[in-house]
Design a binder for these strands. Structure first.
Lengths: 151, 151
DNA sequence: TATTGTTATACTCTATAACTATA
DNA sequence: TATAGTTATAGAGTATAACAATA
């Protein structure tokens, strides 16, 4: 078996060819932000996905599970347990929209929790790129949106 | 049970309060790009993670599994099956660096496959934001790097 | 025929713990 | 004591298929 000399010393920086790739940087940045948000939301016993559903219902009273799923890219099948959990926690009520679909509405506790979610998210977002001018922040968000949103 | 009037008509756009959040846009953009890359790499029977390992070894002959893990944020435990798979496919060889660690080197087939990976990634990256000037692309990558890279 | 909500299930990705051998 | 590689396993998160009820 061949012997390889030890790779340089401890301080030798590894050449990471992925550093110049938009997709890779996006992935790392996204993972870091998501992990931070998950930690910040722990005190509310909500995952980032659950929190996003709560906010969406708050802004769209009467929205259905299927609509939420289409908006947030969550499978219909995966929306069921989320909506059930939020209902069990007395955060929302279901009202019959038509025979097969139900409109979702935040209850008082749901509105209060959504407010806390917004506060946590605001503090969370401020932790990243705090020195980025608001204008550039908006521009960045627009660029990212162009990557995935229907053209 | 209360009755809710149907939510507007089909064309009513849902108010998505997440549209203004950097973290959320990052997550959606990242997921879209990752899915596209996964599809593009299928023909090589490599996942995006496996491809990134291949490229990193190609650029850093003799790198160890642990170093790869630290560089790409892959757990040491999860590197083992990846390295084993690449070895079984005759893409790389292991050489003893010291008693406990092995340096990884691409074999001829690994170098050839890495070249194909680079071509696929180049085409993949060009599909997103094709009209973004190179300078702004670099700037965007720098911003994203600041989000996750050690300061 | 298509859609909604639901259940069951599978699959992937990632994380943790434990172990041996070596530094 | 700390690190490298490995195995086993657990937990999220996500995806698919099927079903009844309704449009």
């Amino acid at each position: 078996m061949a012997l390889t000399p030890p790779r340089d010393d401890e301080t030798a920086s590894i050449d990471n060819p992925l550093d110049t790739l938009l997709g890779y940087q996006l992935r790392r940045a996204s993972a870091a932000i998501l992990a931070d948000l998950a930690r910040a939301l722990e005190e509310l016993e909500l995952t980032p996905t659950e929190a996003s559903v709560l906010l969406l219902i708050g802004h769209n009273p009467g929205i259905t599970q299927s609509e939420i799923g289409r908006t947030l890219a969550i499978q219909r099948a995966n929306m069921a347990p989320i909506a059930a959990m939020l209902t069990e926690r007395f955060l929302l009520t279901r009202t019959q929209a038509d025979g097969r679909s139900q409109g979702l509405l935040l209850k008082r506790a749901g509105v209060a929790l959504a407010d806390r979610v917004r506060a946590i998210i605001a503090a969370h977002e401020a932790r990243f790129l705090p020195d980025l001018p608001e204008e550039e922040r908006q521009s960045l968000i627009g660029v990212l949106r162009r990557v995935w949103a229907p053209r």
